[in-house]
Write a protein that binds this DNA or RNA. Structure first.
Lengths: 244, 244
DNA sequence: CGACACATTGACCAGACTCAAAGCTAGTGG
DNA sequence: CCACTAGCTTTGAGTCTGGTCAATGTGTCG
């Protein structure tokens, strides 16, 4: 589906909240997309490289990250279907972070030039795209807060709440269960901890009956208690009102 | 100066890199600014409030932060003269974080409506403003990386490098010395540590002959070694090429 | 069946936190 | 002009969360 109608994913995301006008819709549909199917762990953009394309995730998980000395890595964001990583580089030219597929994934590459053109002609679309980057920033700020001021236990709980809601909004999750195709090492690199400690903390969360794990999916057994433990407030995700 | 010609600060910032066109310049000068002089610790925007204004810092230090339970606070960004905090809310309506003056400060408040209008008429200005928010995001990502993967020592060293370069680019610092009008508690809340540990770590940095402190200014005694210790790479600040 | 990557567990360690008590310093009011 | 105060900085002693190192399970895929 995503691959047959790649513009759909972008349109759906930009139309979140208020629908696009007919002209805007057509303009977005006119974007030249280059579809790429990616193997797990394949690089999309290298840290520090100049970049002249954005990228829309159609399926799979994509991650942004920075590499430091001594093999340290910080994952800055996870992106799922509908997300637009790489908008960061639109007005900066270079990305100071890498972008890679974490799972098998399909993405659509969009040249900056096409976006600049689109944005110049359709201020309404510009506003949507801008808004989209601002939502990502909002999430980044929440992560920053977690790394700075939340315990490991709260941090993981918070992350799970976030991941569930984001995936549900993208139609990828429901009934308290959602895919979590990440290794504990990846989770650790996102949450500023070690994989060992992620493992122990997940065990604690299972012990508290807050979650359960089944192969690569996570089951949230008690969202209310989990979000209370995490001091989770979904406002920052700026999602449209939840479905009934 | 800043108060006599409040538009200057904004113009200078937006013109960083490539100069604005004459029409764009006039449009920016036409922005309705409401100047406010703020006492230290006074709130500008409350966390969670709807917001219909942006804010340009003319002088002093302004901070963005989130408050958690049990008195925990995470400072998300420091803003100095020329910075535009609150652009975050331009397309979101609410800010999920508070904004406050940390020192005595003067700011110019700009209604969103005026900015939307400006942006619609001048895509070039929109691009500059957008770019400006992207630079802030870039800094946010670097902070995230620091909180997740740098030791306290590296983190403070990194922050000092950043603060010095940003202030120098704003014409507020030179010769390796710059104002640092923050309490150790504020530093701690920004860097995800306790004030006690900030104190001890600053002592270590002084002991290593990397910095010195004089009342409210910091002296960087060896920028090369300091930035090496922090693994600091200024690219993410997206500053114009340094002056000779 | 191996090989390899990932998850899990144990034992031990250390960087950073907590609690608490002094020093400083700048501003205030007598 | 000086004592007083309030807020900040500095230091010490002890604790704890989370990291390190290393071994052992557990799948999964060719």
């Amino acid at each position: 589906m995503a691959i047959d109608h790649p513009h759909e994913a972008v349109l759906r995301r930009l139309g979140r909240g208020a629908p696009l006008s007919e002209a805007e819709r057509r303009a977005v549909e006119g974007l030249p997309l280059r579809i790429r199917t990616l193997a797990p762990r394949s690089m999309i953009v290298h840290q520090g490289d100049p970049s002249d394309t954005c990228c829309a995730v159609l399926s799979g998980w994509v991650g942004c990250f920075k590499i430091l000395a001594e093999g340290r890595r910080q994952i800055l964001a996870f992106h799922i279907a509908g997300d637009l990583p790489g908008l960061q580089s639109l007005h900066l030219g270079t990305v100071d972070h890498g972008i890679a597929a974490l799972t098998g994934a399909t993405v659509a590459l969009i040249p900056h030039a096409a976006l600049h053109d689109l944005v110049e002609r359709h201020p309404g679309v510009a506003a949507r795209l801008w808004r989209e980057t601002l939502v990502n920033v909002s999430i980044l700020r929440e992560w920053l807060t977690g790394l700075g001021r939340r315990s490991a236990y709260e941090r993981i709980a918070h992350f799970l709440c976030e991941t569930y809601l984001r995936q549900r909004a993208a139609g990828l999750a429901e009934d308290g269960r959602c895919p979590l195709p990440l290794t504990q090492t990846e989770l650790a690199d996102a949450l500023g901890m070690t994989s060992v400690h992620v493992n122990r903390t997940l065990k604690d969360l299972r012990g508290s009956q807050l979650i359960a794990q089944e192969q690569r999916t996570i089951v949230i057994r008690d969202f209310a208690r989990l979000s209370a433990a995490a001091e989770f407030d979904p406002t920052y995700l700026h999602l449209p009102p939840a479905p009934a």
